[in-house]
Design a protein around this nucleic acid. Structure first.
Length: 768
DNA sequence: GCAAGGTC
């Protein structure tokens, strides 16, 4: 029978597809990975009976990385990582999943790719496809395109299978490669520089750079600096109050008061408790010109009679929230429950695994038509905390269909509770309860009130007072995370006049902004496109883990010296690493790749050039960079390695050919030598007997002697053109061939390593 | 020992 392999992005989706298409009768068996089972059932494909095999990966199947010879931080110049080859291979962590797919692909005629319908999903599609084709090069393939995991969507996707979108996938390849290269280059560079040059950094302390980490850090630093550099300014305003629960007086009730105002700020109620006063807002709010406010104030005091100019009444609403997506879950829980985003996501993940809530990684904030929200509401009927309210929604007239937000990931619905959370405890309970209350709130009506805005005039100045009477709390009854309060004010009528309780000349100062809180940071990252709903929490954790940022009082993010030093160092060179622009520009380019307006290589090469130029500039201006760092850290008087000489290219490798360089290197024991970049594949190396390599320079001179004799016999194609010269030999500079000059031979030994020739004498030969 | 993005 025709056998079709179906692969989803995660086990839950595989299960959903199998349940739906099989009409709830799939057979279940274990795969090689215990987390990714296989479902089987009979089905029809183009009216032909087929055997469906449905399984899943867990996110990306493959990993992108440099080949093994580029893994050494000590032996590889970070600069090389801009051009070094990169390899895509099955991630060790996914090896069992890959095995399942291999086995099933061998037996299948066709693979249908049910990966999430987003950029990453498109990329994973090609990873899965490539892996299938490796073991079955005749396998056919199709892409299932679906917007939700509903029967309707899945069935339609099955009936109208398409092809994977290669451009979308390519855009992800570009992002991955750039993130890898730039991350590795700058991480190694900064880590080594700080470890070697400054005190206080452990040999293993990684000072990472990442295209999302740095903007995240940048947001924190930016707010910190705005606060630090804030200049307080005095401002002035007029404060008009009336007595609370006092009916306004008629104008001629107390003529004596007027004369009192003329003397000074008169406060009729000064013996009363101030809390009993109701303050009007000055329509000018505040002015920075003291004299100006003083003049206006004097006018008011001289003629303090207030006249009610207008009374404006209108209904007012407090809007219920949109259906919950991941970013809002993190932002709101972080704000209201004071949990950090990583913790929230871990809890949400575990609630999802235990079946309490729907899939928690979603961008979608509107419910698809296929989901009956009333059924979801009824889930909460048995929960004592919610049963009364649920009753009002389902049996009263309090239900209102949720609003439609404008975000969608075309795959997952908003987050909602799936079963009652009666047994939960601690933070699990708090997060669950938030999700449940939020869900019920978004199925409720907006809160309704009546607002009254009273405007009065005193000597030409206007003051307003706003009152609010809440008529129906509606969603606020269940959503305890938001407040809306009655503001009771006395009754006024237009044209009415009265003498205020007090008119005061007030001065105050502008306040610096607070340090950044986690909900604010989440909002900024989301807005500026730093990270995704699923990774924002990771980036926030990472900048703390890396000690760039600390959280104070479990509330405010503050940059550390390290965080500030890094941002300022790159800033001093004019690089916007800590700003969101670079990432945003890349995102823009990726969209152009997808729309076919730019090609992969252009974007890749342009961006590599951008970062490479920045890196070269960083190295060439290391002093500038280091000067900034010295403001925060002390120089290590005994640096372990001469960092700047670490990666000098000495010559091309006589064994590997002109593409491969021989580099100046240092052993763990601090001994300097030259070694082929291709180590451990090539063991060619030059060992000085004394430490004579510190001044090695490369020349373009060809050694005629070598061409004719010894070297050639070692199959070292001596067409290499570079001859090191060693400076401490007289006359300076001493210029000679490192291979055949007897003077040099006294100072160096050359290890050719194992060669492919049959000449066993050629191994480990020295020059003596 | 490095990134960001999927995911368990």
């Amino acid at each position: 029978m025709l056998r079709i392999l179906n692969v989803a992005e995660k086990p839950s989706v595989a299960s959903q597809i199998a349940q739906t298409l099989s009409r709830n009768k799939p057979q279940h068996r274990r795969g090689k990975s215990k987390y990714n089972p296989i479902w089987e059932f009979d089905h029809y494909f183009n009216n032909q009976k087929c055997r469906m095999v449905v399984t899943s990966v867990s996110g990306h199947l493959m990993k992108l990385d440099f080949p093994q010879q580029y893994q050494s931080w000590n032996m590889i110049d970070p600069l090389e990582l801009f051009e070094a080859p990169v390899e895509r291979f099955v991630d060790e962590k996914s090896s069992e999943i890959a095995k399942t797919i291999e086995i099933e692909a061998k037996k299948a005629r066709c693979v249908v790719l049910w990966l999430d319908c987003d950029r990453e999903g498109e990329n994973i599609s090609f990873e899965v496809l490539e892996h299938c084709q490796k073991f079955n090069n005749r396998i056919q393939y199709k892409r299932a395109i679906f917007n939700a995991l509903t029967r309707q969507d899945l069935t339609r996707a099955w009936e109208r299978l398409g092809i994977p979108n290669e451009l979308e996938s390519i855009s992800v390849d570009v992002r991955r490669e750039l993130d890898l290269r730039t991350g590795a280059v700058f991480t190694r560079f900064q880590s080594k520089l700080l470890q070697n040059m400054f005190l206080g950094f452990g040999e293993k302390q990684v000072i990472s750079y990442g295209s999302c980490q740095f903007p995240t850090l940048g947001f924190v630093v930016d707010r910190y600096n705005r606060r630090k550099n804030f200049v307080q300014e005095k401002y002035y305003f007029i404060d008009v109050s009336i007595k609370n629960q006092t009916q306004p007086q008629d104008e001629d009730e107390d003529q004596d008061q007027k004369s009192n105002y003329q003397r000074n700020s008169y406060n009729k109620g000064r013996n009363n408790n101030n809390k009993k006063l109701i303050k009007f807002d000055w329509q000018r709010r505040r002015l920075f010109d003291k004299f100006c406010v003083a003049v206006l104030y004097e006018m008011c005091v001289k003629n303090p009679q207030a006249t009610v100019l207008s009374i404006f009444k209108k209904p007012e609403k407090k809007y219920r929230p949109y259906p919950l997506n991941t970013v809002e879950l993190q932002r709101r829980c972080s704000k209201r429950l004071r949990l950090n985003a990583t913790m929230i996501m871990n809890i949400a993940e575990s609630l999802y695994q235990k079946g309490y809530i729907s899939y928690p990684r979603t961008e979608t904030n509107s419910f698809p038509k296929t989901i009956n929200v009333k059924n979801l509401i009824s889930v909460q009927q048995n929960d004592q905390r919610f049963s009364n309210y649920v009753n009002k929604l389902l049996n009263g007239n309090k239900f209102c269909p949720p609003k439609h937000g404008r975000f969608s990931d075309n795959s997952h619905p908003p987050i909602y509770p799936v079963k009652p959370g009666n047994n939960l405890q601690g933070n699990d309970l708090r997060v669950y309860e938030f999700i449940a209350r939020h869900f019920l709130a978004c199925c409720s009506q907006d809160a309704i009130g009546d607002s009254t805005v009273v405007t009065i005039g005193i000597s030409g100045e206007k003051f307003t007072l706003k009152g609010l009477i809440i008529r129906e709390y509606n969603f606020l009854e269940i959503y305890k995370y938001e407040r809306w309060s009655d503001i009771t004010i006395p009754n006024f009528h237009e044209g009415q006049t009265f003498i205020p309780e007090s008119i005061l000349f007030q001065e105050s100062e502008t306040q610096p902004p607070n340090l950044l809180t986690e909900p604010e940071l989440i909002k900024l990252m989301d807005k500026e496109g730093i990270g995704t709903d699923a990774t924002i929490a990771d980036h926030i954790s990472k900048v703390q883990y890396r000690k760039y940022v600390v959280k104070e009082r479990n509330l405010y993010f503050k940059p550390t010296d390290l965080g500030l030093a890094l941002v300022e160092s790159y800033d001093s060179l004019g690089f916007q690493f800590s700003k969101p622009n670079l990432r945003a520009n890349l995102e823009f380019d990726l969209k152009l790749i997808i729309s076919g307006q730019k090609n992969k290589n252009d974007v890749l090469q342009n961006n590599i050039k951008l970062y490479k130029d920045a890196f070269l500039k960083t190295i060439n201006n290391q002093n500038k960079f280091i000067t900034k760092l010295r403001l925060y850290f002390q120089i290590n008087p005994n640096p372990p390695i001469q960092n700047n000489k670490q990666f000098l290219q000495i010559m091309t490798c006589p064994k590997c050919g002109p593409q491969t360089k021989v580099l100046l290197r240092t052993t763990k024991n601090g001994k300097t030598y030259c070694g082929c970049r291709n180590y451990p594949n090539c063991k060619f190396s030059i060992w000085p007997k004394e430490n004579v390599f510190s001044e090695i320079k490369v020349t373009q001179v060809i050694c005629q002697s070598c061409l004719r004799n010894k070297i050639k016999s070692f199959k070292c194609d001596c067409s290499f053109k570079n001859i090191p010269m060693i400076s401490h030999l007289e006359p300076f500079p001493y210029r000679a061939c490192i291979y055949c000059d007897p003077e040099i031979a006294e100072f160096v030994s050359i290890n050719m390593g194992a060669t492919n020739t049959n000449n066993s004498n050629s191994q480990n030969r020295t020059f003596n």
